[in-house]
Design a protein around this nucleic acid. Structure first.
Lengths: 417, 417
DNA sequence: CAACTTTTTTTCGGACGTCGAAAAAAATAA
DNA sequence: TTATTTTTTTCGACGTCCGAAAAAAAGTTG
């Protein structure tokens, strides 16, 4: 607690195994000599570690491209490429949202083995009962994709997640609170199980896709039907003490301001959520209850179209949303001094409509000396980003926590190596 | 970048040396057997490491209390206590504020060797010129306290610090910006040099005083003439990408709100700073320029006295300040989900006057599900906390970064062992 | 086509750090 | 003086990394 832990011999090997696995995951198939350059381990050590990993079935040689890649006239012994061995393990990634369980299965090499969607009734499930529905859906999905048991399960859910309890504390996906997830799943499948906020998984996906650009300390603002935030701090996903960090949607923007879905006044979401934009666009009072507004999947797209067509009320709504967004930038920067802020989500396509107001608000909300050299960037929203991030996180957990453990040899057959 | 680093043998020894040094620093003089229990290292390893440290002059045996401590009737070979050896090194801690350079010198065992205050003219120093004044003051101070050169210098400054540049970007302590500190000092004294925000050093002091209580992720809100924040994330001081994290004083509280010293409207400080409280207590308009208000060292104390005497305007000012504080709590909790928030500073004595408003605001500003199990605590302000934290940080840096390096034997004489 | 060059991979021996077990040391108790 | 207890040190074993040398696997050259 607080003090650095002691180190011992085993730890060295664990860490270096993990470093080699991560190097292969990040850079694709590599020759041993290049693994040495990437990891700064000596060639001798690379040979030692990779021969362990090969005999454990986690890594395998690639015969395929060996000669094709070779430049003409290259002399010397040709490099033999090593790659993560797909069949070594499978990971199951799950995304929970309203009425929907989205599932993806990937092998250890990161190839997608299958994906599917199951439905459930968000309004009727109970806190204890949902896990059975979930387990059944996952079992059926696994059976359909070959019946190979996963080695790791990672889940992403809308709403507020309680890390230590392994529950969804509060979410639009469930009418009830404290929905049990991790415990029942880990028992049912007998494998490690990780539950996260969905927006965090966007940050994870970005980080894995380009660790240089999306690294250090950066924030993702997810502007969609609601507003979420994903946070990387010092190159690691940050979830806070209970897993509820980065819940900026219901952080206050203006004390006593617009009425929010959560019943409070002035939340950021009450200016940026789908219902908030619609409410403003229609010229309704800011205290109009969100439940009175007809929002759906199409809402945001329709609003963007209306604004592009020049509808003044809708433009004004995006302007107000942009102002709220800009103050959110200012507060995040003042608190965390990040390297980058990424805006995405269904409403990210509308960022050009909000940008001017957002930058003005940022200037009004933060002394310029504090703005550091932060870059603000809107990226087009892809629905798959969340599930991709969840897969990436599961694979990373295998690399660093499961397969870093030395002596995985016996389990090879079980996993289908 | 992003990927975990490789580990090797040297690193093990470095880490374990550092773990032993930290165990001695945190728990005071210890026998080898107890060091083994604390660090989870084997007795054999403890002997090996401590004998190195002793021969390098970093640790020394304590003959003194050996027998006094012994319980009557205790059998067996008596434990021989080891302690950090004071003369092994000295650290210099410096606090920069308006017109004032506060200095403290401590030995490696953490004992205060001397302290002093020097003055300078905040309004007239230049960005490049201040370092000379600083170096002269420090040289004179070192000469007065025995002339032993320090092994490490840590500085804390009011305002915004730029970590990578080693400058004070912007501060009430200087009329100019980007005041050079680290570079000139490191060159002049030839030792490592660390510059921090002063509020961060409060967090550091609390963490070192009780790592259990002030650990994990926690925030310190420093309410004084202005408002600052210090942040610990995952047991480590967090300063952001450029060192400007946790600058909550000029984060926006209410868009377009009260006029702040920085020229913007609605900053948290414009409701909680000394001038803000005074402005409100006197019933002045919120747009009254802060420069028009006669604030000084006594202001806060006088306001507290007036409020305790029942002055309605002053009570109302603290109420408004409390509301701003409560919204600040809400925003920090929503962003970081900390274990604890500590309120301190000259205005901390007034926390009872603000608490009711703060808790109401917290409730209005944050869904209860997000409140987690955060504890909010006001602690009485001690002026020395900042300098104590700066000393602690310097010593910790020696333990983990300088003396963890194996083979310090040759330098012993230089350092005065 | 055999000898040489180049590059990658493996093997070997040395160094070093941790650990468990045994020995040594330093006290009290009998 | 001898036994007991507790702490500290010593010793040998084991594991890991590394540098150097050897082996392997190609292309190049005469």
């Amino acid at each position: 607690m607080g003090m650095t832990q002691k180190a011992d011999r085993d730890q060295i090997r664990r860490q270096n195994r993990s470093v080699v696995l991560q190097a292969l995951r990040r850079n694709g198939p590599q020759a041993r000599i290049d693994l040495g350059r990437i990891t700064r381990l000596s060639p001798a050590t690379v040979t030692s570690i990779t021969s362990d990993l090969i005999s454990e079935g986690l890594v395998a040689g690639v015969e395929d491209d060996c000669q094709r890649e070779r430049e003409k006239g290259a002399r010397g012994r040709p490099r033999s490429l090593l790659a993560l061995h797909g069949p070594a393990a499978r990971v199951l990634a799950v995304k929970l949202s309203v009425n929907t369980i989205e599932m993806a299965l990937a092998d250890y090499a990161g190839r997608l083995v299958g994906r599917d969607v199951a439905g459930f009734d968000s309004t009727s499930v109970t806190a204890d009962g949902f896990s059975e529905i979930l387990i059944d859906s996952l079992r059926a999905f696994i059976a359909r994709t070959g019946g190979v048991a996963p080695s790791f399960i990672a889940l992403a859910s809308q709403g507020v997640v309680d890390d230590s309890a392994g529950t969804v504390a509060w979410s639009p996906a469930f009418a009830v609170r404290h929905v049990q997830i991790v415990g029942p799943l880990a028992r049912a499948f007998g494998v490690p199980c990780l539950l996260s906020n969905d927006t965090n998984m966007i940050a994870e996906a970005l980080h894995r896709s380009d660790p240089q650009r999306y690294g250090g300390t950066f924030a993702v603002l997810f502007v969609d039907y609601g507003v979420g935030m994903g946070l990387f701090i010092n190159d690691r996903l940050f979830v806070g003490e209970t897993g509820a960090a980065a819940e900026i949607g219901h952080a206050n923007h203006i004390p006593g301001g617009a009425l929010c879905r959560c019943g409070r006044r002035g939340c950021l979401e009450a200016y940026l959520g789908d219902y908030a934009l619609l409410r403003h666009a229609r010229g309704l009072d800011l205290q109009t209850p969100p439940a009175c507004l007809p929002v759906g999947r199409e809402t945001i797209r329709e609003l963007i179209a209306a604004a592009r067509a020049g509808d003044p009320g809708t433009l004004e709504a995006f302007h107000a949303g942009g102002t709220a967004l800009g103050y959110a930038f200012a507060r995040v920067i003042a608190t965390l001094d990040p390297r980058r802020i990424v805006v995405t989500g269904a409403a990210a396509d509308a960022y050009p409509l909000m940008e001017a107001a957002a930058l003005t608000a940022l200037e009004e909300g933060l002394v310029s000396d504090l703005r550091g050299s932060v870059e603000i960037e809107a990226i087009a929203w892809e629905e798959d980003l969340i599930l991709r991030g969840t897969v990436a996180r599961a694979l990373h957990a295998l690399d660093t926590e499961v397969f870093s453990e030395t002596g995985y040899g016996n389990q090879r057959e079980m996993l289908g190596g």
